[in-house]
Amino acid sequence: MGLHIFWFCLIALTWTGYLFLEGFDFGVGMLVRGLARGDTERRVLVNTIGPVWDGNEVWLIVSAGAMFAAFPAWYADLFAAFYVPLILVLLALIGRGVAFDYRGKVENPRWRAAWDAVITIGSIIPPLGIGAMLGTNVGGIPLDAQGNRVGSALDVFSLHSLLGALGVLGFSLAHGLAYTALKTEGELRERARRLLRRYGIALLLPLLALLALQLGTIVTGIGFVLAVLGALTAWWRTSAGRDGQAFAALGVVIAAAGVTLFGSLFPNVLVSTVEGVPPLSVAEAASSPYTLEVMTWIAAFATPAVLIYQAWSYWVFRKRIGVRHIPAAHAPKAAA
């Protein structure tokens, strides 16, 4: 196996890892206003992801960085084609990131409500934008022979974009509910469970529909079947009150989705919908063997370490959080 194929798989893995990790923290963000009742419950939700969301988001940065290093044209042409959605994603990520930190820093209901709105919107836009981009990447983008987008910013959108956007959004929300059930206690946990049981499958349908469009090889078929089984298992386990197993089953759904989506893209990284423009293959887009070798060494040493210390941080913060754990709000008073 050439290193370029290894890097294609690794990038598939980092994107999938990203959707897995930040999927639930987007979901929790979306629920801050919808699921929680009152400020203390909102703080419970925010604090379930407080110590980890930033580490989750680095998976996005690394996905982008790894594409840049290993497949420059994939990175450049895909991002430039999805210019407007990505700018919206970036704005949302900016707002939501500071919102977590800033919302409790002033003792004022309007201040908090404003940041809660930023968290909610900031958690809805990124899964939509990233889902649309990844879905369209698989379905095909109107690119010319140089890899530049043909037509306007709107011309990139297709059925794949729609299903990708709704698919990642729905998955994130379902995963956020499962995470809330796993990480909180009391009423909040019950509400999350109830919603997941009731709407979980429906939330996963757009993603499953996107996967169904990509059937055709053994690999994509296996991914699709696993995703369906994962979805059913998640529903079954959450009905049985097993939060951890439901959460893990949803992890299987996104992992299987990663297999099907990137499996159907392979052996290409960019497929043009313009007639006569050949697809850009993994081999053509790859950086030089030396660059890939350098990056492989870095990844070989760093990745296990990253997985270990990130897992350790989840272990440190493994306890469920409930209303009783939330200390009284402490923000400095306005100038005396």
Partner: peptide
């Protein structure tokens, strides 16, 4: 990209993960 992408990716893999976690 063959050159410039590498330090950028390394920054993420080596530094940003440690920083954020």
């Amino acid at each position: 990209g063959d050159i410039f992408g590498a330090p950028l990716a390394m920054e993420g893999i080596v530094a940003f993960f440690i920083e954020s976690t």
